[in-house]
């Protein structure tokens, strides 16, 4: 069993009357690809927003490397090694692809050190070297997703939160993103993934956590999850519910 790098304990987030996540406890093991899945509105993006400091917790606690991090700012968490690749790619459109990635290297964990080498490595890992001089706004959706990941890993994260990196991509592009995520794991970075493409999730995950209506309903290996009746019911519905 690998050591935990991220631990959420009884994490609850309320938006006025709406409970977005209800006492969710989960663990992400160091060096793993752990996926968070669930139907729309299950609370996956809320969990990502809580871990990255975009939203304050209502209750519970979040620990990263044994340090309690709930309440810390997004900037402080980025400096500690938590990076996020967004679901909707948010490039800096008027800046070149190279400089987009370089900004990640300049300000992330251990910023200022080996900035140029880190930038080049992130571009190479995501296959963006040939587009380095182009304005980021010129890239297609598939390459924008790569840029999103390149910029995040240039920040030298210990934990990368990848928010639906395969959404809207064709099977070949999806496979390339999966390859990139595997290579990131192989370099020692833990990947915490939210993804709707179940084939991709089953192929690359070491561990899968399933949320439904703000609560955790299952956790296990891809094989265990695909056979779990509660998960099947959450995704396909039950005969009684029809």
């Amino acid at each position: 069993m690998r050591a935990p790098i991220l631990q959420l304990t009884n994490v609850t987030k309320r938006f006025r009357g709406l409970v977005a996540t209800d006492r969710v406890s989960l663990t992400v093991a160091a060096g793993s690809i752990t996926s968070l899945i669930g139907p729309n509105g299950a609370g996956k993006s809320t969990i990502f927003n809580l871990v990255t400091g975009y939203l304050p917790l209502s209750e519970g606690e979040i620990r990263f490397h044994d340090e309690r991090i709930d309440g810390k700012s997004t900037v402080a968490l980025a400096r500690r090694g938590i990076a996020r690749a967004f679901q909707i790619a948010k490039p800096f459109p008027d800046i070149s692809v190279h400089d987009n990635v370089r900004i990640g290297a300049l300000f992330g964990r251990d910023g200022r050190r080996d900035v140029d080498q880190v930038t080049e490595r992130a571009l190479a890992l995501t296959g963006l070297e040939d587009f380095a001089d182009r304005p980021a706004g010129d890239l297609t959706v598939g390459f924008l997703r790569r840029l999103e990941i390149a910029r995040a890993i240039a920040a030298r994260p210990i934990l990368l939160l990848a928010d639906e990196p395969c959404a809207g991509l064709n099977p070949a592009e999806t496979e390339e993103i999966c390859d990139i995520l595997r290579r990131i794991r192989a370099r020692g970075t833990t990947v915490f993934l939210v993804e709707h493409d179940m084939e991709a999730v089953m192929r690359i995950s070491d561990n899968i956590i399933v949320l439904d209506a703000g609560a955790k309903i299952a956790e296990g290996t891809p094989g265990e999850i695909s056979a779990n009746p509660a998960v099947i019911a959450a995704y396909l519905g039950t005969p009684d519910a029809a």
């Binding site: 990255t52 997004t74 990076a83 948010k90 900004i103």
Partner: peptide
Amino acid sequence: EDEDTARMLGVPT
């Protein structure tokens, strides 16, 4: 270009 993304990357905005 995008203040929220900049914060996410560690820029002390």
